[in-house]
Design a protein around this nucleic acid. Structure first.
Length: 608
DNA sequence: CTGTATTGTCATTAT
DNA sequence: TCATAATGACAATAC
């Protein structure tokens, strides 16, 4: 493996890059590009090169492994390769029945190196382009026998997380499904793999700081990976963030994979990606205690839309602080939707993260004792243009592979106030975001994410100022309840200001949405009115034409009758009157008179 | 790259 | 007068 490592990585620089990427992968669950495309272009290029090399090498290895295929038994029913009893007994015991996806070309083997290669191959195939950088690092590390086996083990295997295995069936080859995610989780959870991952990073400062989410290290409060400040937040963040993000990362990775045409054979089944399933189940499995934390709670709440959440019981009390992650947007949106909005329209829940969303307006909060919050505000407000950069700052560890800053990771555990508060907050945001798009169709991921992030801004602010209410509560509570709630907590000026702003913004957002909806409805109504009026106009014009025609005919008839009557009149001498000299006029009482015309003056008038 | 649509926010006005 | 709703305007972002 070392040889391969050398081959793989020509320069230390590459090594470093890969290490960073790999670490990020660990954090992100191999879903990096989702967070930042632009910033990682360079890395992607390198990754692609590495990946290509890796692919070639892996294919060669695969060919070699075919020789070992004989050691495996093909189960006709399942289509799985099952290692022959003698060879892989230890592995099986450790993990569960060993199963290898045929198409992937993995087989169960006793040979550690080979199995690990298979693992790498799986990684490479799973994340063809962008994700591949992880594999090189992994290869370099000493092979761990169990890793590959875990990779290949069937999703059903009860060993690690039965709950997450609900789907049960082994996905068709080349298909990505929750099972696959499960396999990933399990794979990453293996101590061997962790060891493998950590091995490349000899620098303890960096290496130690990146334990796998489900690794025992996560339990360690001091675990640098998740910067924690306050003692209260520490636990929740540590526990929750890891798994959820991890899960989210998986979910995110799938869409990306689906997009890549290179992976034509890979098919993603959206239903399987149901957030509730993967996230919750994972949380339950790996962090039963963490469910109470905000991220979990948030996820759960958000997932209500998806319907599966109900399956997962809440195992811990839900405190107001925990509810932070309830993205204001979610609850908010839900409420709004209940009022009148279309479910996905969202309100706010749309997706793309626009960290900067906030307008430059600087609120009162943040000043004075809350310098921290202030800085945070600045962070939000001063980087309006660069959503990416904001995100990177906010999620430098977990979400900004490129920006990964070891120093941050190290410092975080130390408990610097700023770092501590920020990170958790961001985590919650990200979680909210992730959970938000879990249920949504892939097409709406971006939108939803953006909205989530936006909504989370207030959430983050609230958290920064340690406001003990959920944004949802702040916004949607009736005035009386709101005041009561506020009265029960002693908040300082900045906090009060922030709460008011949050409430104002939240309500205004709904109002704006309603206003726009109303406006659109008005436009539609006016258009309809216009159409109906046009029809009315046409109808009236037609009617007018008919009346005019009728009138004309009547006049003609009257003129004929007049002339006929006039022609019958005779004077004393029996001579007829000239119409030009006389006219017939009717008085008001109905009597008719023959009136002589005044020459040339009224002639025309009288006749007609 | 430009234009458009969407969305959140703020300021102002109306209720 | 205060809280809230309504709405015009602006900015950020995605497409």
């Amino acid at each position: 493996m070392m040889m391969e490592m050398e081959v793989m990585h020509s320069s230390q620089q590459d090594m470093d890059l890969i290490d960073i990427l790999w670490k990020q992968d660990i954090d992100l669950g191999a879903r990096r590009e989702v967070f930042d495309y632009n910033h990682r272009q360079k890395e992607h290029e390198l990754q692609r090169q590495r990946e290509l090399e890796e692919e070639k090498r892996l294919h060669l290895l695969r060919e070699q492994e075919k020789a070992l295929l004989a050691q495996l038994q093909l189960d006709e029913e399942t289509g799985e390769y099952i290692p022959r009893p003698p060879t892989s007994a230890p592995l099986q015991t450790a993990v569960s029945p060993l199963e290898v996806t045929q198409n992937v070309g993995f087989r169960q083997e006793s040979d550690e190196a080979m199995s690990f290669d298979e693992c790498l191959l799986l990684l490479a195939e799973t994340f063809p382009i962008t994700e591949s950088e992880n594999t090189p690092v992994c290869l370099e590390t000493p092979a761990s026998s169990s890793i590959s086996s875990n990779m290949m083990m069937s999703p059903e295997q009860p060993a690690v997380s039965p709950a997450s295995l609900s789907s049960g069936q082994l996905p068709p080859p080349q298909r990505i499904s929750p099972d696959f995610e499960q396999a990933w989780m399990e794979l990453l959870s293996l101590p061997e793999l962790q060891q493998c991952l950590n091995m490349p990073m000899e620098d303890t400062s960096e290496t130690t700081t990146y334990p796998l989410p489900n690794s025992p290290e996560v339990q360690n409060p001091n675990f640098p990976f998740y910067p924690m400040t306050s003692v209260t937040d520490e636990k929740t963040n540590c526990l929750n963030v890891g798994p959820v993000e991890f899960i989210n990362a998986f979910e995110g990775s799938v869409p990306s994979m689906a997009r890549s045409e290179d992976i034509g054979q890979m098919k993603v089944e959206a239903p399987h990606l149901n957030s509730s399933y993967s996230a919750d189940s994972f949380c339950d499995v790996f962090y039963p205690n963490a469910m109470m934390d905000e991220s979990s709670a948030h996820h759960r709440l958000e997932g209500n839309e998806s319907a599966n959440l109900s399956d997962v019981p809440i195992k811990a009390p839900f405190t107001p602080m925990d509810a932070y992650s309830l993205s204001p947007g979610d609850g908010f949106d839900r409420g709004k939707q209940s009022l009148s909005e279309v479910p996905d329209s969202d309100s706010g829940i749309s997706s793309n993260a626009s960290p900067n969303a906030s307008s430059p307006q600087k609120s009162v909060y943040g000043s004075g004792s809350f310098s921290y919050s202030d800085s945070e505000m600045d962070e939000f407000d001063q980087n309006p243009g660069s959503a990416e950069s904001d995100y990177s700052e906010m999620f430098s560890i977990n979400f900004q592979p490129d920006d990964l800053d070891p120093a941050l990771c190290l410092s975080a555990p130390t408990g610097q106030p700023h770092e501590q508060v920020k990170k958790p907050k961001q985590h919650s945001v990200e979680l909210a975001e992730e959970s938000g798009h879990d249920d949504a169709p892939f097409t709406k991921d971006k939108q939803k994410r953006r909205s989530d992030v936006r909504l989370s801004r207030d959430e983050q602010r609230a958290k920064a100022l340690k406001i003990p209410f959920t944004v949802d509560m702040i916004i949607n509570l009736p005035v009386d309840d709101f005041n009561e709630m506020m009265s029960k907590q002693q908040l300082n000026e900045a906090q009060l200001a922030l709460v008011r702003d949050i409430r104002r913004r939240g309500k205004n957002k709904v109002a704006a949405q309603n206003c726009r909806k109303r406006k659109m409805e008005n436009i539609v109504g006016l258009e309809n009115d216009l159409d109906s009026l046009k029809e009315e106009k046409d109808r009236l014009l037609s009617e007018k034409r008919e009346y005019m025609t009728s009138l004309k005919d009547t006049k003609r008839q009257l003129n004929s009758l007049y002339l006929e009557v006039f022609g019958l009149l005779r004077d004393e001498k029996g001579n007829s009157y000239s119409p030009s000299d006389y006219s017939l006029q009717q008085s008001t009482d109905g009597s008719i008179f023959l009136v002589p015309r005044i020459k040339k003056t009224y002639k025309s008038e009288d006749v007609h």
